[in-house]
Computed example of a mutant assay.
Amino acid sequence: MHQPTFALLGLLLSLPATALTFQTRLEKAQWQVEGDQFECRLSQPVADFGSGEFVRKAGEQAIFRLSASERLLGQGQATLLAAAAPWQPGRGDINLGAVKVQLGSTPLATSETQAARLLTGLLEGRSPLVRHQSWQGDRTEVRLLPTHFAKAYAEFASCNTKLLPVNFEQIKRSQIGFADGVALDDLGQAKLDIILDYLKADPTVNRIQLDGHSDNSGNRLLNRDQSRRRAMAVFEYLKAKGIAEEQITLRFHGERYPLVPNNSASNRAKNRRVTITLSREPAAEEAPATAPNGEPAATS
């Protein structure tokens, strides 16, 4: 390293560390609730920074995240605290652990456990506090205030009761198992009903691909027929529930693409399945059909 570089580093290290706190004035602090069947949000704007918000997606628990209008936190780690209010003498801050800080408009997102503890702290009058320290020693803090939180939290809880049981990421590729034979059992129908409820709520998901599979217990022709009949069972169930036939693509593969080796009864049961793949993308042109692992599909 050249001597001027050492000199610059020494200068930086000799500069006094600074502390910067982002917090809305108490009289202006407010919580906002918005949401729908897919996501509920409970947020508080933070002056000159952006906002802090609890976000709960359908099928998941809430997380807490910061949204920033500018790059105000450096990449690295921050400490998350449920901080005691100044008017709560004798109460210490609760350290909820480290949180990764990354570049972008949403620099920080907590785990579900950390978010749950922040919510509990807010109900007790504590403040979510993010404390970030740069490698130069400069400290930046982002604090949300618990004022007027109870009423907003009740609205947030009410929004949560209207969320769908699953979100798109959770069901965009699903498996319907077949214990034996080709008939849908109660568990398979229950899984399909959950998918159908989502499809009714989100009409942008308009393509459904069904891939039928078998184990290797029969001969090749029998296995292909079993996989076809399983895919047809799912097809007929969806169709009977109002899904347009033209939205569904049906394929069957016999024993060609096992999930696990067919070397035990439990493994063979896992391979007797129909894979459901949901998509929002309309087909601009017909592409060659491919099987789940990218090989040409057997469709007839």
Rank of each mutant, 00 (worst) to 15 (best):
Q175R: 10
E169R: 14
K172C: 07
L164E: 03
I195R: 07
N167W: 06
V166C: 03
L199G: 01
I171A: 12
S174P: 10
Q175Y: 12
A190H: 03
D193Y: 14
E169N: 14
I176V: 15
D197C: 02
I195W: 08
S158R: 12
D185R: 08
Q175F: 12
D186V: 14
I195Y: 07
L196M: 04
Q175D: 13
I171M: 13
A157N: 06
L187C: 06
L184P: 04
A157M: 07
K172G: 04
I195Q: 10
D193R: 15
A154I: 08
A201Q: 11
D193E: 15
Q170W: 01
A154W: 08
L163W: 13
E169H: 12
N167K: 06
V182I: 04
R173Y: 13
Y198S: 10
A201C: 09
F168C: 04
Y153R: 11
Q175C: 09
A190Y: 02
K151E: 09
R173W: 13
D185N: 15
A201D: 08
A154Q: 13
R173H: 14
G188Q: 07
K200Y: 12
L164G: 05
A157C: 08
R173S: 15
A152H: 05
A183S: 09
P165V: 01
D197V: 04
V166T: 02
S158D: 09
T161F: 03
